[in-house]
């Protein structure tokens, strides 16, 4: 097979990574943007999403779509509620102090991780995809000077992977609409811009914070539910999404949602392509290098506004 089809396949794989990463990173970015909290436990909410998806899917028999459907409806809400509880019982008590929240969320990270190990165990377990048709992909060649479409052997993807990309895009549009077109989005943005003035104009900032923390964790959990039919649930799976989310949020500009999405696509797709043609390690090295360059030459991120 020539180079072109490989590149298309790698790009598609990268797009799946990008879709899941965008959801996870937007959650992290929301929490940082509105609450100024660096949530080190974000990856564990992702992991919880995957593990709980396995549990929820196991509750229902019959067609795999039933179990998966239950998981995708219930798990993000469940994880969101856990996060709200963590916010109210821990982060609120330490007044959202920047340094102490980092230490506190590291603590939450280990608590969630070890509790999962104690209950769910060290195994990696799959969740069956709700639909998983193999789709052959076309490519074109030049025969007699005219382009012709043909179907190279082995060049295929699955309907589920395309579904993940579509679902992530739909959720991101939903988040955007929530932030720009609803009353609660307006309150969230006002809180982000000036917490003290938000209070002075009657916005219940503590409730907004709890909601944002829950929403951020819910997005991570949703991303995990989407990826778990491809990747399997494991109690240590939260590390990579956390690292990549931080990379994406820094490159995109802290607290900027459009920047986060663009950076997620950039990092996700290049990660896919570099992993296929070279190695996954090289992909991570380059992404980290990019973060370093962004921090040196454009500290506010590609899309971030300089704070006055």
């Amino acid at each position: 097979m020539e180079f072109g089809p490989y590149l298309m396949l790698a790009t598609l794989e990268g797009a799946v990574t990008a879709a899941v990463l965008a959801l996870t990173a937007v959650g992290l970015s929301l929490v940082f943007g509105v609450m100024r909290v660096v949530n080190v436990a974000h990856g564990e909410f992702f992991m919880l999403g995957a593990v709980l998806a396995w549990w929820a899917a196991g509750l229902v028999g019959g067609h795999p779509a039933l179990g998966f459907g239950l998981a995708i409806l219930v798990v993000p809400i469940l994880v969101g509620l856990i996060a709200v509880a963590a916010d109210v019982t821990i982060l609120k008590r330490i007044d959202y102090d920047p340094e102490r929240t980092i230490v506190a969320t590291i603590g939450i990270l280990y608590i969630i991780q070890q509790l999962t190990l104690m209950t769910y165990g060290p195994e990696a377990r799959p969740v069956e995809a709700p639909f998983n048709t193999r789709l052959a992909l076309p490519w074109f060649e030049f025969a007699d000077g005219r382009p012709q479409i043909y179907w190279p052997w082995g060049l295929s993807t699955t309907s589920y992977k395309l579904g993940v990309i579509g679902a992530a895009a739909a959720v991101l549009v939903g988040v955007w609409a929530l932030m720009t077109h609803t009353r609660i989005g307006l309150l969230m943005r006002a809180t982000q811009l000036d917490r003290e003035m938000a209070l002075a104009f009657g916005i219940p900032v503590e409730r907004v914070y709890a909601l944002v923390f829950g929403l951020g964790a819910g997005l991570a959990a949703l991303a995990a539910v989407l990826i778990v039919p491809i990747q399997q649930a494991h109690y240590l799976m939260g590390g990579d999404p956390l690292l990549l989310s931080f990379i994406v949020v820094i490159i995109g500009g802290l607290g900027s949602l459009p920047g986060t999405v663009v950076a997620a696509i950039l990092i996700g797709v290049s990660d896919g392509i570099i992993s296929v043609f070279f190695s996954p390690t090289l992909a991570k090295i380059l992404a980290t290098l990019l973060v370093a360059l962004v921090l040196v030459f454009r500290p506010q991120g590609l899309f971030g506004a300089r704070r006055a």
Binding site: L186, R189, E196, F201, G202, I203
Partner: peptide, 18 residues
Amino acid sequence: RLFSELTVAQNLEIGLAA
């Protein structure tokens, strides 16, 4: 101390909501 990135209408909406 306005909500700088919000519009005039949105700033007033927050005042009204209070």
